[in-house]
């Protein structure tokens, strides 16, 4: 979820340099999910990636730094997350990767870095669109589309009839702008008709 407060870049950077704890929620809302998403792509372990994201943000308070720009700040955060994620792989005994494999992973990660950051930012935008829907419609999108729950089960969970579910889905599709999500929802609708 985005923070309600928007900060001027300069104010943001000053407050980070000052170690102002009040800025933490904003930074979390802005970077946390992207950092987890990015790290998860490397570690394949969500719990681990959540820890890495939190560690990364907290690091700003452990080593207060004045960043030149918001871009530099982002670069710093993702670099920390990248290193911690690769470190995790190195210490993972189960996978017992060879040095060579690790360095290959590093290269692979770096070659995908930009794509991954863009991908996570795009997901944030699409997800925010869903999150902004009225609750009744949002629930339908989350259950049927994102979580892929069978429609009968979703109707039961929401305590509504199949007809009602179909109506809500129709409304959700009307409200959404992102075509791919609408399409995805529409496909779920088809299966409903045969129920």
């Amino acid at each position: 979820m985005p923070a309600n407060t928007l900060y001027e870049e300069n104010e943001l950077l000053t407050r980070i340099a000052d170690g102002d704890a009040a800025i933490y929620p904003y930074l979390h809302d802005t970077y946390y999910s992207s950092l987890v998403y990015f790290s998860l792509n490397i570690t394949q372990n969500q719990q681990q990636s959540e820890d890495i994201a939190v560690d990364t943000l907290v690091k700003l308070w452990q080593l207060p730094t004045r960043f030149e720009s918001a871009g530099k700040l982002r670069g710093y955060l993702f670099t920390l997350a990248r290193n911690a994620s690769l470190n995790y792989l190195k210490h993972q005994k189960v996978r017992a990767q060879s040095e060579q494999e690790i360095s290959e992973t590093e290269v692979l990660v770096d070659s995908r870095a930009e794509a991954l950051v863009v991908e996570s930012d795009l997901m944030r935008i699409i997800y925010q669109e869903i999150a902004r829907l009225p609750q009744a419609y949002r629930e339908v999108v989350e259950l049927l589309y994102i979580e892929g729950m069978p429609s009968a089960e979703a109707a039961e969970k929401l305590g509504i009839s199949m007809d009602n579910l179909r109506q809500r889905k129709g409304r959700a599709i009307k409200e959404l702008k992102t075509e791919l999500v609408r399409k995805g929802l529409n496909e779920v609708l088809l299966s409903l008709i045969f129920f």
Binding site: M1, S33, V36, Y37, L40, Q46, E50, S120, M123, R124, I126, Y127, I130, E142, Y145, I146, E147, G148, V181
Partner: peptide, 8 residues
Amino acid sequence: LSTWHGIE
């Protein structure tokens, strides 16, 4: 999106 949802 499903991955993102799980993170959120």
